[in-house]
Design a protein around this nucleic acid. Structure first.
Lengths: 163, 163
DNA sequence: GCAAAATTTGCAACATTATAACATTTGCAC
DNA sequence: GTGCAAATGTTATAATGTTGCAAATTTTGC
């Protein structure tokens, strides 16, 4: 898996999408999980941009496709994709974003720009290790970490209004 | 502000509540903010336990009080309490919990037991500093951090089923 | 005190996000 | 091709959160 583009900066986004889909196919094959057309399509929609997409946004896009979908269709696809580490749910936004570290075991940390909405996923080993240390200090067995940072991305600090 | 009780362990919870209410009164006075009866009552309800309470749970309790409340009443009170640093919203649970560090500027980190639902709020300076470092490394200006750890508290690791 | 202004609350409707329950179809093993 | 498990379709509903405006209360300026 090669270096990732920075979401905040213009880039060849089609490459992001094809990479993500290729990774997904490989990972599902490994897991013996079925990346059905709906699931793949939902993943593709999530990867339309580096902005988190709500379940009902996905639903809307599916409808534009001519697909007669209802909420459970979307939520089931999203559950599947989450199970297989292909998308993350951003709890503070009730929205979903493609995982940029699919296949790597990781604890995601998300930098969410409040101006342009783009999200950068990081793995910050030092953060993870301090979190574990803090939890362990209380005798707590950490299983799942939600770490979401809202703020301003470099681009929006300089000049506002990108999307 | 004295040492805090550990939510996972039995303790004199009335003391938590009165401490929280006393702190709240002091803080609101400082801020020239009005801790009206409704707001105080909502804070008290939130502090019923160390388990996060949903907005509609609060609403239900208000109704049991005989108070004829609608959702906006609760959400407005919760907003006020959040503004003044008296409660936190747990994004991963859509629920609210009393702040155990009211008055101190802090970035909360929450240890959420999936078995007993109790939540411990920590301030972990090393975590905060690593988070800032990681964000800064990307040129990101962090404004607001959501850090929620789900897992098992010490008590529930030993024997399950507490509440 | 008293009227004007600002804040808070009441209230009705509605918007958004997510799930439950059950029927139907599809893919796969044998 | 029969039978089973997984995936999808469909309808309804639950859970969470917001908007907009009117009424009541509190504060402020005088």
């Amino acid at each position: 898996m090669s270096a990732r583009a920075i979401p905040y900066r213009p880039h060849n986004h089609d490459a992001c999408v094809s990479q993500a889909l290729a990774d997904a196919r490989a990972i599902c094959q490994q897991h013996n999980a079925r990346l059905t057309p709906i699931r793949e399509r939902v993943l593709e929609l999530i990867w339309q941009s580096h902005k988190p997409l709500g379940a009902y946004d996905v639903l809307g896009e599916l409808s534009s496709d001519g697909h007669n979908a209802a909420p459970p269709t979307v939520y089931r696809a999203l559950d599947f994709l989450q199970q297989n580490g292909l998308v993350h749910r951003i709890a503070s936004l009730n929205a979903f974003i493609g995982c940029t570290h699919a296949g790597q075991s990781h604890t995601g940390m998300f930098l969410i720009c409040r101006a342009c909405s783009n999200v950068l996923e990081l793995t910050a080993p030092m953060v993870t290790s301090e979190v574990c240390k803090a939890a362990a200090g209380e005798g707590f067995r950490a299983e799942n970490t939600t770490l979401e940072i809202a703020g301003l991305c470099p681009r929006c600090q300089a000049e506002p209004g990108h999307d």
